[in-house]
Design a protein around this nucleic acid. Structure first.
Lengths: 224, 224
DNA sequence: TGTACATCAGTGAACGCGCGTTCACTGATGTAC
DNA sequence: TGTACATCAGTGAACGCGCGTTCACTGATGTAC
């Protein structure tokens, strides 16, 4: 499950058109990358047809079945890639954070940068969480769950470093994750010049959650 | 645009089957309510076909065009209903709030109650915000924007009553709105016995945002 | 009260299309001898 | 090194289906006289 090589050309043996009508080898990754090129601001994975993906991959429709049982299986594979991609992005941001630029801000900026870079995997994850088959929705939840776990660890570390506590770290992480996904999804549709201010706003919102959690921990506030 | 009467039977003149093959009058609302009965946990409005809706409404497919230009126009009409429904629910909750039960908690509970009651309009609004045509997404944004405005007024009133301030009231309202939508959408898929705890969690998350906003206002915290 | 007429929400039939899926096939690759 | 063979990712053709959309139509309703 390596997210790399998705856009790499087919195996060297395959191209050169020497064999007349037939591809020597079409890999699973070729189909995945074909699906990704089709996904865009107005095309979610659930609107793609099997034939469309096969066409984009340069493959007969029935060849699709050699690699995936159906479109749902492809969608789930894509979501798993998207999840690890997202975690990779934030994992990097975590290391870039310094005393100057807080973890919150660095992470939000890294996230938005990737969004601006038109990362199709990220688009998918943000946009499609609430539609599709049960299996698909479960796959999305699983990836967001992974992300929440890593974020929670980050937040706890951050709080310890600041000598504060967190009220319900797991919930704090979940709130941040879901908010970022929701805002990210709407930001995708904004014209580029409005995205910078969306980044600012998102950073403030995330900060509200962090500060709220810290304050509630400090005051032992339970009345809700 | 009244959300009532959607499930009412057709006009008295229409039924009774006296006219052999033809409905005397099919109203716009009949088509809307047919679409609503088709929407469910695994059917979003974007997966409905024109013929399917017409069939459910007991109408020839081409009759659809007498009322809507296309499915997108129907979807937008549904979203507008959903928005006013949501605002109605929270508007009521606002009045139910007492000193005993905070506005936050009352509102979250009212929201979740409506969700449990299988309100199809609410399902739509929560689930479909990120997919569909540009016009559709804009319609969703517009409804959520209305909601944010009302929520912001509420929050300001609440803060004044508590003799505290709010940091960026508009952003606070937006963060809460988007979080509630996101959590609500995933809660829809939970088995009923897990929904109570989801309600608790959501109330805590919203409280974090409110407390964070108040704390940031109080401390004049700007370092983000 | 009756009659003639315009309106327009309904109709059934038909169209061409892209879809998912199946079938029996083919031929390049890798392996065994 | 050559030959025979199994494997299996690819193929083209065909299927039946539901779709959106169009057409010319019909007949109930409301209005004018």
């Amino acid at each position: 499950m390596t997210p790399t090589d998705l856009t790499a050309e087919k195996s060297p043996v395959a191209d050169s058109g020497s064999t007349r009508g037939r591809k020597v080898s079409i890999s699973r990754d070729d189909i995945i990358s074909a699906a990704l090129t089709l996904i865009g601001p107005n095309r979610s994975v659930s609107t793609l047809s099997l034939r469309e993906v096969a066409r984009e991959a340069g493959v007969a429709p029935n060849s699709f079945y050699r690699h995936f049982h159906d479109m749902d299986e492809l969608a789930i594979a894509l979501i798993e890639l998207a999840g690890s991609s997202l975690r990779g992005i934030i994992g990097e941001a975590r290391h870039r954070a310094t005393a100057e630029r807080s973890v919150v801000r660095s992470s939000v900026e890294a996230f938005m940068e990737q969004l601006n870079a038109d990362d199709k995997l990220l688009h998918m994850l943000l946009r499609e969480g609430t539609a599709g088959s049960d299996a698909f929705k479960k796959a999305v939840e699983k990836q967001l769950g992974f992300f929440e776990e890593e974020l929670q660890a980050d937040l706890v570390r951050l709080a310890a470093h600041n000598k504060t506590g967190l009220y319900e770290p797991a919930l704090t992480a979940k709130a941040i994750t879901r908010l970022v996904v929701a805002i990210g999804a709407t930001t995708m549709d904004l014209p580029p010049e409005q995205r910078a201010s969306a980044t600012e706003q998102l950073a403030v919102m995330v900060r509200m959650i962090v500060v709220g959690s810290q304050t509630m921990a400090a005051s032992g506030q339970v009345r809700i």
